[in-house]
Amino acid sequence: MRFGREKNEQRRKKDLEGSLEALRREAAEAQESGDALAEAIAYNNIGTVQCDLKDFEAALESYLKSAALVPETATLDEKITPWGNAAAVARRVDQWVEATAYSLRVDALATMAGDAEQQEVATMMMALVRKQFGKKNFAEPLDAAMAMLPEELRPHVRRDLHADPTFRKDAEAK
């Protein structure tokens, strides 16, 4: 049974490595043809496969490369996806301030677009990082993460909501 499990694992790894190769070819072709969005999507998918291979450092690099490639004309989802993925992997590799900054990017982009659903995605992502730091200690890393954002995005972050979510008791008292 153990032997079979290892064999399945090897097969799965080989499949994933095959996907990785195909996606790298896709990224190279997109770069050659000057299709920045296709290249960004390929790098995002490369990151996801690297994540499945547990190569989290490489996955983070791929997601950040994807985020940098996404053109201004892309849809909100296309802009947000690599930042959301980068935040998840940054949490995994203990880069918590960076994870906060990537989550804030999602928040700012969603707020700028007035997309309530994506704002909630950002709210949940911020809950994850706030939990890691603890509510009382969160202001400092939150400000450090804010400082990592491009200046034009900062005003769109719902900083107050993330810094001090209202506890139930307080909310009920209001």
Binding site: T123, A127, K135, L161, P165, T166, F167, A171
Partner: peptide
Amino acid sequence: EDAVQMLRG
């Protein structure tokens, strides 16, 4: 009592 946190309300 303060364990339940309202994330958005």
